[in-house]
Design a binder for these strands. Structure first.
Lengths: 250, 250
DNA sequence: TTTTATTTGTCCGTATGTATC
DNA sequence: GGATACATACGGACAAATAAA
């Protein structure tokens, strides 16, 4: 209504510093985590404990923790506490890129779960990537890759249906792309190229990767070829950028 | 104008399709861009012009443009106009990564502008990257890299102050990191490693890179070494993910 | 260098359709 | 059906940045 006096100069920031209280608390906590005061995986003191120590309201602490959670530094679990997220998993990109080996060597339990599959006619771009004729039959596999139960990446892979007609069944049996290709006589293969982009996570990927809205994903488009250089597999993987970094050694 | 009978009580959404007006306008514009009606880098008609042509309110057009901007297809500049983003620049990562050569071969005008510089004592992580003793004097250079006047990346580079005491002056003179190192006797160097992460752009980077809030940046942490393997330069570059993709050929 | 026009960004509104409880 | 919250669409005014005169 006309008479309603709106927003009487709400004090949004501390009058002196120009930085809000929750922001300063968030920065302090970030420094403490970066400085090793709180180790990865460790449980932070409860919200009430932090608030009491700093002499602020619990909700101010909550706002700070929400900021850190949105940035992927901590993870809040209702009824349990707030935990420092593990450091980023180093994911080497090179000629011999294999998910299971990478995660295995990092001392974590690897897992690749098939969450969808379909057949489609190869559109021009996909046909070019796999050196197939346009419209050729291809099989798509949607795989959610996790390490220690934490989702790492959501990957869409395509293979020629002529090459691997029973791809879905074979993958289900072994849960390994390497084993799938080996079953069809491709004992070894190598990564030909990888193109890396980044973007805010799509809604579906954000849900599957358990990401806060607006967080970034690393998008890796790759082509795998036989040792003779024949393309057999192309993948678009979306990595949770908060939990993974890609490493290139020259 | 008086006689123009404009859509009486324009339906909020298409009565049949269930798709809102701004969404349809966004889709139309997207098709026009994809179809080449508006070339990359070209300036779109002004909001008022588009609104007038379509017979809708300027704010509805703004909503459509905001959608396209959020997806990285266009970029709005206050006081100037809305521009179609160029396709992603392919940025090869390898042993011989040089910004000017990469952009040059893509047929664009490269530019590296020094926007800040400072001296600092190397903190542990930085000292390790450059194989220096902790607390050693290092020079930091903040460089904004552009191609055809469009910002591509914001990069922070560090060198040992003992190695390159006049780094700022030399860089200013040549606007090239290769020339800077050459001046100090390092005729050639190679990329030892690159670590790639991604995150939503920080406020300052977003402004410098002219990114909409929430858009992603690719973060590349790299170490350059002499041919003998001595670290001489380490850089943290933030690429505008909408305009660049990193390419790794194995 | 200064001025002016253009263009986008932001705020204030109003009315209405949609979804949910 | 009613109450409510929210998104859509429109209209207007002004601020802020830019570009051209």
């Amino acid at each position: 209504m006309a008479g309603v006096r709106r927003a009487v100069a709400r004090p949004r920031a501390a009058p002196d510093s120009g930085v809000t209280l929750w922001r300063r608390i968030a920065d302090d906590l970030e420094r403490a985590i970066a400085g090793g005061v709180h180790a990865a995986g460790e449980r932070l003191p409860g919200e009430i404990a932090i608030a009491g120590r700093l002499g602020v309201n619990r909700h101010t602490v909550r706002r700070a923790l929400a900021e850190l959670a949105a940035r992927g530094l901590v993870r809040s679990e209702r009824g349990s506490g707030t935990y420092v997220e593990a450091g980023r998993l180093a994911y080497p990109i090179g000629a011999r890129t294999r998910f299971s080996e990478i995660v295995g060597t990092a001392g974590r339990g690897a897992q690749g779960k098939l969450i969808a599959h379909w057949r489609e006619a190869a559109r021009p771009e996909l046909a070019a990537r796999l050196s197939l004729t346009e419209g050729a039959d291809v099989i798509g596999l949607e795989i959610l890759r996790s390490a220690d139960r934490v989702p790492i990446a959501c990957a869409t892979s395509w293979l020629s249906a002529a090459l691997a007609p029973e791809a879905v069944r074979i993958y289900r049996a072994h849960c390994s792309m390497t084993a799938l290709l080996a079953h069809y006589g491709i004992a070894d293969y190598r990564r030909q190229s990888t193109r890396i982009a980044a973007a805010p996570a799509e809604a579906l990927d954000a849900k599957r990767l358990r990401l806060a809205p607006g967080r970034a994903v690393l998008i890796a488009d790759s082509i795998d070829v036989t040792l003779a250089g024949v393309p057999v597999l192309t993948t678009r993987a979306r990595f949770a950028a908060d939990r993974v970094e890609l490493v290139i050694e020259s």
